[in-house]
Design a protein around this nucleic acid. Structure first.
Lengths: 143, 143
DNA sequence: ATATAAAAAGATAAAAATATCTTTTTATCT
DNA sequence: AGATAAAAAGATATTTTTATCTTTTTATAT
């Protein structure tokens, strides 16, 4: 449904949302150890997110990845869009080049609204907001 | 969202649902031409579906692929399950090994119901039933 | 200034998905 | 029986995704 790259990316970003700030930065190795994903692959993904201003980083000694307050206001859909693109949520489920409300494929009318709803769920909540339930233990990213 | 294999498979099956029966069979080449997908790849997929009794075929002269009346009573979810498996709809959206109602990831509560609904939409309607809208022109698989 | 520790960039490798081609098997027509 | 036309099976090729490793750049502490 999502690529591994997106999955790792979201988990990494949520880890940083929970633990990092301008003066608490983390190496990909550390993050990877905590969230249980391959470190060099996560590093690549974090670099991509950094290049697109969804994650912050500083080089050199005491450098590392972190989320700025501004980064934390983004939604998770921005992460998915940056890594996978949104095509998988927006293009025809059976791959027809033409599929719209006017010219629907057989599943369009029933599935398009559900897919739109999924995108909305990832759009309407900031990364920051997702951390509330994580801090209270209602949800988790570690198990 | 679905693999190309599943997309082609569904399109091929719907084509057969519309046009084939025990004495009207089609070669992968013919089907592929109509639905606009690579013929040898479609052939592989149809062979897999045939092996799992979701599509029928006969070898030799005047052979080809077709859907029996029984095949037409299956749901599209059976096609997807056979080709891709249902994991992508059932496992954690961010790939956590543990993610359930009791131990949810941050998106679980909002996304799991939507994914379940998608599976239901593909479950509650037979392939046969999908052909009604296709015949009346309300939906299409050709554009 | 120099050493150091970190991200960034680049190169390479392995695995999976997609795509094509060739050979074998099989049913049926003549 | 032999020729034919089709699926089935197998082999190969290409592309994309996933994963790792190496080199370069850069900020900072000493």
């Amino acid at each position: 449904m999502l690529s591994k790259s997106s999955k790792y990316g979201i988990r990494g970003v949520l880890y940083l949302a929970l633990n990092s700030n301008e003066n608490r930065k983390f190496s990909p190795t550390t993050i990877a150890k905590y969230i249980g994903v391959p470190a060099p692959f996560l590093a690549k993904t974090l670099q991509l997110l950094t290049k697109n201003h969804l994650v912050s980083s500083s080089k050199g000694r005491h450098g590392g990845f972190y989320l700025s307050d501004k980064n934390k206001q983004n939604s998770l859909i921005a992460i998915v869009d940056c890594i996978d693109g949104l095509d998988k949520f927006e293009s025809c489920i059976i791959g027809l080049p033409v599929c719209s409300n006017e010219n629907p494929c057989p599943m369009h009318d029933r599935l398009a609204p559900l897919r739109r709803a999924m995108v909305e769920e990832l759009t309407n909540k900031s990364i920051e907001e997702f951390t509330n339930d994580l801090r209270s233990g209602k949800t988790h990213i570690f198990l």
